[in-house]
Amino acid sequence: MPPRRRTDGGLPRWVLLPAGLAVLLVAGPVAGLLLRVPWTRFPALLASDASVDALLLSLRTSAAATAIVVVVGVPLALVLARVDLPGRRVLRTIVLLPLVLPPVVSGLALLTTLGRRGLLGARLEMLGIDIAFSTTAVVIAQAFVSLPFLVISLEGAVRTAGHRYEDVAATLGARPTTVLRRVTLPLLLPALGSGTALAFARSLGEFGATLTFAGSLQGVTRTLPLEIYLQRETDPDAAVALSVVLIAVAAVMVIATQRGARGDR
Results as ranks from 00 to 15, higher is better:
51 S>F: 09
51 S>W: 07
93 T>P: 00
48 S>N: 02
227 E>Q: 15
171 T>R: 10
211 L>S: 02
233 E>V: 09
69 V>L: 01
177 T>E: 14
165 Y>F: 15
245 V>C: 06
153 S>M: 15
180 L>Y: 10
82 R>M: 10
177 T>Q: 14
104 V>N: 06
237 D>F: 08
213 F>S: 01
237 D>H: 11
116 R>K: 11
43 P>K: 09
146 S>F: 05
221 T>C: 07
132 A>Y: 07
54 A>F: 07
180 L>H: 10
13 R>T: 10
83 V>F: 11
160 T>G: 13
167 D>M: 14
235 D>R: 11
226 L>P: 02
60 R>I: 12
256 A>G: 10
49 D>H: 14
105 V>A: 13
88 R>D: 04
16 L>F: 13
91 L>D: 04
219 G>N: 07
172 L>H: 04
98 P>G: 03
48 S>R: 12
241 A>H: 02
77 A>Q: 00
27 A>W: 11
155 E>C: 01
68 I>N: 01
177 T>W: 15
46 L>R: 07
42 F>V: 04
160 T>I: 13
119 L>G: 05
71 V>I: 13
59 L>H: 03
69 V>F: 03
66 T>E: 04
234 T>P: 01
118 G>F: 02
126 M>E: 15
32 G>V: 06
75 P>L: 08
244 V>D: 02
196 T>N: 08
159 R>F: 02
198 L>R: 05
232 R>H: 12
10 G>C: 06
105 V>W: 05
61 T>I: 07
31 A>S: 12
109 A>R: 00
212 T>F: 03
107 G>P: 08
